[in-house]
Design a protein around this nucleic acid. Structure first.
Lengths: 339, 339
DNA sequence: ACCTGGCACTCAATCGAACCGAGTGCCAGT
DNA sequence: ACTGGCACTCGGTTCGATTGAGTGCCAGGT
C-alpha cells in the first residue's frame, strides 16, 4: 500500500512545499529530486497518497500540499533529526553562558530559540511545585504588614504581602521565621501542605492568629497559585518576510497572549530528551489548527522542572526545528544543573 | 490664515479619517458634520490646509488624509480629553483592585490598557533607581555562595548570587546583614554608591574581602544593571480586524521585542499628569514612523517611578487614547501609593 | 469679499473577456 | 509496471472599458 517510493514521494513533497510554500506538481518533483521515474508515475503515486489522505489539492488544477496526516507520517517515519552545526552549537553556548540569574536564563533562552528557528518560541519558568524550598524570609513592612519572600532551589523568588491584622513583636517574628524555615527548607513544594499545617499550634495563644495568616499566605503562594510565568519571543516571525498574506495571524497572536493557552501548549511535554510534536488540528485549540508545536521539557539532570516549545505554521521545517529545540533544552538543562 | 472654520474642517477630517480609515472628501464632510457651508467652500479650505501641509492627497482624485503635522495641530489645539464613562472607571478599578503583588499590578495594568484602547500597551516596571531600599537579605546557599535579595519600596525584589570565595561564619554574616541594612534602608537607590563604599573598612582584616564582594554585587544589582523590565500586551491589535492589510507590521512587532527601543519609547515621559504624544516621524525610530505613542509617567504621589505608553497607528483616536492612558496611570499611581 | 452651483477633468478601483499555463487523469503502447 | 501523449480544468494574469468619487476653477449671486 505504501511502498518505498510512495514514501519518497511524500518526503519530497513535504520538503519542497516547506521550501517554496507553494503546491508542488509532478514535474517539479522529478526535476528537483532524482527519483528515477517519470512524472506520470509520480502522478499515480500522488493519486494513491491523496486517496489515503496524506496530501491534498487546493484546487483541481494545482499541485499537491501535505495534509496534517501527511506531516504526521513525515515526522514519525521520514525524519532524521539532523545535528546542529558546530557554529550553531557555539552560538548557543556563548549566548547562554552570560546569564546572571534565572530570569536572565529564561529570557536568553527564549530569544535564542526564536532566533534559531525563526519562529515563535515559548519558555516556561521553572515551575514552583517541582522544586524545593531553599529559604523563606519575613520582612516587616509596617506595623501590621509583612512581606513574605520564598526562594526555591531553581533560584526563583516569590513574594507576597501578608496583612497579619495586628502587630507582631520582632522576637516572635524571628521565632516564626526560624521554625518555618526549619520545617520547610529542602522540602518539595508539592509536599508542603502537611508539613506546615500544625505550625500555629506550637505557638502561644496570642501569636497563633498571626502565624496562621502567615502560613496560609505561604501555602497560597506555593500551592494554589497557578500563574506560572511564561516568556514568549519571536512573534514577528509569524509574519512572512515576503509580502501579502491571507491567513489568519490575529487569532494566533491573541492566543499567544493567553497564559492558559500557552500552558496547555506546553502542558504534557515529557522528559528533556523526548520531543512532543503536535501538528495542526492535533493542537488543543481551534485557533491553532494551522500551527504546529514542537515541545519538550527541561531541567537539571533528568528531572523536568519546566517546558519549552516552538510554535510555527504546519508547513515548518520539522527536522531543523526539532533539533534546535532539543539542543537548546539540553543546554539550558546543563546550565540549571550547574548553578 | 487659519481661521476658525479651517480648524473645524481639519478637526472633521481627522475625526472622519480615524473613524473610516479612508480619505475623506468635501461632500462626505458636509454630510456628516453640519458645517453650514457648501462642499465648494470646504474644498477651498482644504486647498489652503493642504498648502500649509496639514493634510495631503494620496492620489489626485482622492480625498484628503491628515499629515503628521495635521495630527499634531489636532492634538495640540483641537482636542479636549473626554472623561471616561463611569462604567469604564469601574472596570479599571475593579480590574486593578485584585492585584496581589507588584508583578501582578504591572501585568494587570498592561492588559487593561491594551483592552481599553484596543492597541498595544507598554508598561515599565517601577524603576530601581528612583525607589528606595526597604530591606536587604543575605541567604546562605552553600559554604562559599550567598544569595543577595534586595526589596525596594515599590515592592520589587531583585536577587543575585554572590560567590564570596571563602566560607563566612554565620555570626559574621549576621553582622554584615545588620550593618548593611542599617546603612541603606530608606535610601534612594541612586544615592547608594557613596553610602556603602566604606563598609568593608569597618570589618576585621579577615572578613573584609567577603564584605567587599558582597558590597560590589550589591552595587551591581542596584546601579549598573540597566535591564529594566517591561511588559507588553495587545500586539494582536496591530492587525486590523477587517481583512487584508498592506503596510508593514513586521518591523513594528520586531521593534516591540527590543528592550532598547521600548525604553526609548517610554523614555522622556514626565509626571503622572503630563502626557507625551509623539506622532509618526516624531518617534525616535524610523520603523515606527507610521506609529504614534502616547506616554506618561506614574508612581506614588507626584513622584514618577516608571512610565507607561500606548502605541498605535498615527490614525488613532487621540482623545480616547489619551484619556485612557491618563486614567490608568492615575489608578496605578493610587494603588502604588496605597501599598 | 465671500460663498455657491456648475462643469470639465483625473485617476484608482472595479468588472469582464480573453488568454495562458501548470497540473491533472486517463489510456494505449512498450 | 512504467512511460509518453493528449484532452481537459481552472486559477491567475493581462488588458481595456467603465464607473464614480473627488478635485480645481470659474462665473454669478449675495
Amino acid at each position: 500500500m505504501l511502498d518505498e517510493r510512495k514514501l519518497a514521494v511524500l518526503r519530497a513533497i513535504v520538503e519542497d512545499y516547506v521550501h517554496t510554500q507553494e503546491p508542488v506538481g509532478s514535474k517539479a518533483l522529478v526535476d528537483r529530486h532524482n527519483l528515477g521515474v517519470s512524472p506520470a508515475t509520480v502522478r499515480n503515486d500522488m493519486a494513491a497518497l491523496e486517496e489515503d489522505g496524506y496530501i491534498a489539492q487546493p484546487h483541481t488544477s494545482a499541485g499537491r500540499i501535505p495534509t496534517d496526516k501527511g506531516y504526521r507520517l513525515f515526522v514519525d517515519r521520514l525524519t532524521t533529526i539532523k545535528p546542529l552545526s558546530t557554529a550553531e552549537r557555539r552560538a548557543i553556548s556563548t549566548f547562554l553562558e552570560g546569564a546572571v540569574d534565572l530570569d536572565d536564563v529564561v529570557n536568553r533562552t527564549v530569544r535564542l530559540l526564536a532566533q534559531l528557528t525563526r519562529q515563535v518560541a515559548v519558555v516556561q519558568y521553572p515551575s514552583l511545585s517541582r522544586s524545593t524550598v531553599r529559604h523563606v524570609e519575613l520582612v516587616t513592612l509596617s506595623s501590621t504588614r509583612l512581606l513574605l519572600v520564598l526562594i526555591t532551589s531553581t533560584g526563583r523568588v516569590e513574594q507576597r504581602v501578608v496583612d497579619v491584622g495586628g502587630s507582631v513583636a520582632d522576637e516572635v517574628l524571628g521565632d516564626i521565621r526560624a521554625r518555618l524555615n526549619a520545617a520547610v527548607v529542602g522540602m518539595k513544594l508539592s509536599d508542603l501542605q502537611d508539613v506546615v499545617s500544625d505550625l500555629p499550634e506550637r505557638f502561644t495563644e496570642d501569636d497563633r492568629p498571626y502565624v496562621a495568616s502567615i502560613v496560609s499566605t505561604f501555602l497560597e503562594t506555593v500551592v494554589e497559585r497557578p500563574d506560572e510565568r511564561i516568556a514568549v519571543s519571536g512573534t514577528a516571525n509569524l509574519i512572512p518576510l515576503g509580502q501579502e498574506f491571507h491567513y489568519s495571524i490575529r487569532p494566533v497572536l491573541e492566543a499567544l497572549e493567553e497564559q492558559v493557552v500557552l500552558l496547555r501548549l506546553l502542558g504534557e511535554a515529557t522528559g528533556p530528551s523526548r520531543l512532543t510534536v503536535r501538528i495542526g488540528h492535533e493542537n488543543p485549540y481551534a485557533e491553532l489548527s494551522t500551527a504546529s508545536v514542537v515541545a519538550t521539557g527541561y531541567g537539571p539532570g533528568d528531572e523536568t522542572v519546566a517546558n519549552l516549545a516552538v510554535v510555527g505554521p504546519t508547513r515548518m521545517d520539522y527536522p531543523g526545528t526539532m533539533s534546535a529545540v532539543r539542543a537548546v533544552a539540553r543546554y539550558v538543562s546543563q546550565i540549571l544543573a550547574g548553578e
